[in-house]
Design a protein around this nucleic acid. Structure first.
Lengths: 131, 131, 131, 131
DNA sequence: GTGGTCTAGACCACC
DNA sequence: GTGGTCTAGACCACG
C-alpha cells in the first residue's frame, strides 16, 4: 500500500535541512504505525512533486534511511519499509533527556515568535485528541 | 543585570544554525521577561566560551538582533536590550498558525527519536510549573 | 597530517560508482594503517581536483563514511578519521567467503579482458613486495 | 554442450551492472575454454531463473555479446558461441597495464572489507590448482 | 578557507 | 515506470 494520503510537508525556512525533515517524517510514521514493515513509501518522483523539492533531495533522504536500515530500495520498483524496521525503544530516562533537549529548542523558537508555553501545550493537546 | 545564570545552550547537530539558536534564545528571554529593556546581555566573549562556539558566531547573532532593533551595542561596554524592545504581539489566528507549523516539525522530530506526544506535553507542563 | 601523497585514483568506466571507489580507498587506507585515527583526510576540494570529479561526489563519499562512523567532519576545518575507527575484524571463515566472492567477480572481469590467473597473481605478488 | 553446471552468479550490490557481470562471465568462460566455439549458452529463461534476475537483463547481456561478435543467436534454438570466437590477445605491456588497473580497484575493495593481499593471492592460487 | 544543502538536468540500470 | 549516479553551479554556516 502506498501512503499517498499521508500529510507530508516541509518547512523551507526552519533551518532544519529539508532532507532531514523528510527523514524525521518517515521515522515518525514508522514509529507511530502509519507506516508498517513492507509498506511502500511514496516514490521519489511523487514526493518531489508533492513537496515541491528537487528529486535529489528526496533521494538523499531515502538513501540515508536505507543506510540506517529503516528502509530497503528495490531498483525499478520502489522503496519499502524494512521488514525489521521497529520504532526505537528508549529508557524512561533517555526519553526525558531527549524531550528536555527538544523542548528547550522548541520553546526558544516558539517564544521568539511570540508564542507562550500554553500555546504549545494547547496545540499538542489538540493534536493528541485528533488522533 | 547580567543574565549569567540563564541556561544558554546550543545543539550543534540539530540542523538549526547555531547563530539562529542564539537569536531565538535572546528573543525568548526578552519575550518572557527574563531579559528586560536596558538589561545587559552576556558579552560575546563570555558566551563564546560558555557555548564553546566561535566568537564570530555569537557576534553574528548579536549583529542580527541589533539590525532587528531588539538590542543595542555600546562599544566598550557591551550589548543591551533596547529600551523599546517588546515581545511581538500576534493575533490569535497567527499564534495558532505559527504553533501549528512549529509543532508539526517538532513532533516529527520527537517521534523520530521514539518520543510520544505525551512526552512532549509532559515536559512542557513541567516547565510551566517550574516557572 | 594531511595524506596528500596518498595514491588516490578512480576508474571512471569500471561500473563501480566513483563515490564507492573513494569510500573503498579510505576504508583500505584505514585498514592498512596509512590513515590513523585523528588523521585529516584530504579536503573535499583537494580531492575533487586531484581526482577530477565533482566536489559533490567526494562529499557524498565522505558523508557515507561519516554515517558509518569511520570519519568525523568538523565544519570549517575538515574531515578526520574517527578516534575509534578500527579496521574490521573478520573470522577466517568470513575472510575466505569474502575473498571467494570478490575473486570470482575479479577473475571474470580479468579473463574477459584476456588476462589469466597468473597475470593477476603476479601483479598482486609484486604489489606485496613493493610495500 | 550446455554449460548448465557453470558457476553463474551475480552480485547485486557490487556496483558493477548485472548485465555486465553476465557479459564478463561469458567472456571469461570463452577465454579459459569452458565454452568453446559452437557451444550453446544457457537460455535466457534458464539464466534468468538461476540468477533470479529479470529476463530483460539477461537478454541485454546476450544482445551486447552478439553485437561484439562473440555469440550468435538462432531464433528458436538458442545462443551459441560464435565459431570465430577467440580470447582477446593482448601484448605483455597491455596485460600488465590492465592487471594493474583491475588489481588496484579490487585491492581497495578487498582491504575495505578487512582482507589482506595474501587473502586474495591465496584464493587465486587455490583456484588455479583446482582447475 | 572548511563542509553542507539545494537545484536543474543529464544519463544509466533495472522492472 | 522505478531508483542511482554524476555534473555544474549557487548559496549558506562556520573558523
Amino acid at each position: 500500500m502506498i501512503v499517498a494520503n499521508a500529510p507530508w510537508t516541509v518547512e523551507f525556512h526552519s533551518g532544519v535541512p529539508v532532507y532531514k525533515q523528510i527523514i524525521h517524517q518517515v521515522q515518525a510514521a514508522i514509529a507511530d504505525g502509519r507506516l508498517r514493515p513492507e509498506d511502500q513509501l511514496p516514490t521519489v518522483r511523487a514526493l518531489h512533486q508533492q513537496l515541491n523539492v528537487n528529486p535529489n533531495t528526496v533521494a538523499k533522504a531515502y538513501r540515508e534511511l536505507e543506510l540506517a536500515g529503516l528502509i530497503t530500495t528495490q531498483r525499478g520498483s520502489g522503496c519499502f519499509v524494512a521488514p525489521s524496521a521497529e520504532p526505537p525503544k528508549l529508557s524512561d530516562r533517555d526519553r526525558k533527556a531527549k524531550a528536555e533537549q527538544l523542548s528547550s529548542r522548541y520553546m526558544a523558537e516558539a517564544q521568539s515568535h511570540g508564542l507562550s508555553i500554553d500555546d504549545l501545550i494547547q496545540n499538542l493537546t489538540q493534536r493528541k485528541s485528533h488522533v
